[in-house]
Write a protein that binds this DNA or RNA. Sequence first.
DNA 1: TGGAGGGGTGAGCAAGCGCTTAGAGTCCGG
DNA 2: CCGGACTCTAAGCGCTTGCTCACCCCTCCA
Lengths: 205, 205
Amino acid sequence: MSAEAATGEAWEDITPDAARRLVVAAVQAFAERGYHATTTRDIAGRAGMSPAALYIHYKTKEELLYQISRVGHLRSLAMLGEARDGEGGAADRLASAVRAFVRWHAEHHTTGRVVQYELGALAPDHYAEIVVLRRQSEDAIRTIIADGVAAGDFDVPEVSGTTLAVLSLCIDVARWFNPAGRRTPDEVGALYADLVLRMVGAGRR
Amino acid sequence: MSAEAATGEAWEDITPDAARRLVVAAVQAFAERGYHATTTRDIAGRAGMSPAALYIHYKTKEELLYQISRVGHLRSLAMLGEARDGEGGAADRLASAVRAFVRWHAEHHTTGRVVQYELGALAPDHYAEIVVLRRQSEDAIRTIIADGVAAGDFDVPEVSGTTLAVLSLCIDVARWFNPAGRRTPDEVGALYADLVLRMVGAGRR
DNA sequence: TGGAGGGGTGAGCAAGCGCTTAGAGTCCGG
DNA sequence: CCGGACTCTAAGCGCTTGCTCACCCCTCCA
């Protein structure tokens, strides 16, 4: 199945409705201001509730962040794992992975910003768990690139460094993407897929 | 003069010594924890002073951040401007710019993190000023790429998008670079310069 | 020698934070 | 109809924050 079959955004699966509204509000506030500059009063206000209501559904403010981070990372991993295990050569799979990953970060740049840039606010045990997920995502990309090199389809002098570069490109989209800008998520995805294939020297042989 | 002649790190030019120690302490604290999670007590403690001493040299906590951000951005701009105006073809100048920029972000990743990721904590007037500097840095890279396309040395379907991609690569180094890691700043700079030249299709013709 | 100025500290202020608690309202099952 | 569970609010607590102030010490100059 195509890696581009992106999982739905939103947090529709979160119940009850109040818990979902809090998560959505937290994502927006964390993305705009960062975890530490966001207050529980701010989150609750955006969700149309009192600050105390937050603690009915979540143990702490940090647990909200953890939930957002975990779900976001699991989605990333699912997307990249799907691309790695897809059919086709390494070039097709790499292009597919980049298109999907870039598009996700563009379409869900608010979630992306929280997921990628608020790691430092996680409690140590939560952080350790998230790091494992991030490592697995990195491994998925590295595997595709290594496959390409092994098959002679790619010309890559340094697989790990190149893997990091590919991830940097994809992740950083969350930082700069502007929905009001001139490029759609699909357009950025396509451009970046092409740029990445050039980086790995696909098609030079 | 070569763009790689990087300006010195450090903040040696800041006087008096106390003001300099406060800036150095602030850079470290902001890089580790982020602006909002850093307290004035934390900064002052790292500088070996009392919290009140901070206000002898700086009007507010935000002014400290602004100073760090402004100097960092001016250094970036000087570096990139120098590369743009350097001698040689677009490929040489682009490679030079990327090598210098990446190396700077690797060597000074603490400053780099503050400069690139704590923009949201700046006061509106300071933020507006910094955005101008960032735009100029982006323009420097775009100019080199446009020159390459015009000269027929580059094969770039979308100059602006590619410019953003190049900046993403360079900037993101500050986020992940680890001095204890296996790559030196020079090695990352060289790898990234190569990757960027492939991205713009230099040497394909 | 005394005063001014610069640099610094300890103590504190006003504001705000994350989180808790007592009480209220609603809904549902017995 | 009543009691329990769930959800929520108003009010508040203990603590921390950015910043200020009164005072002190040291150096320099007239």
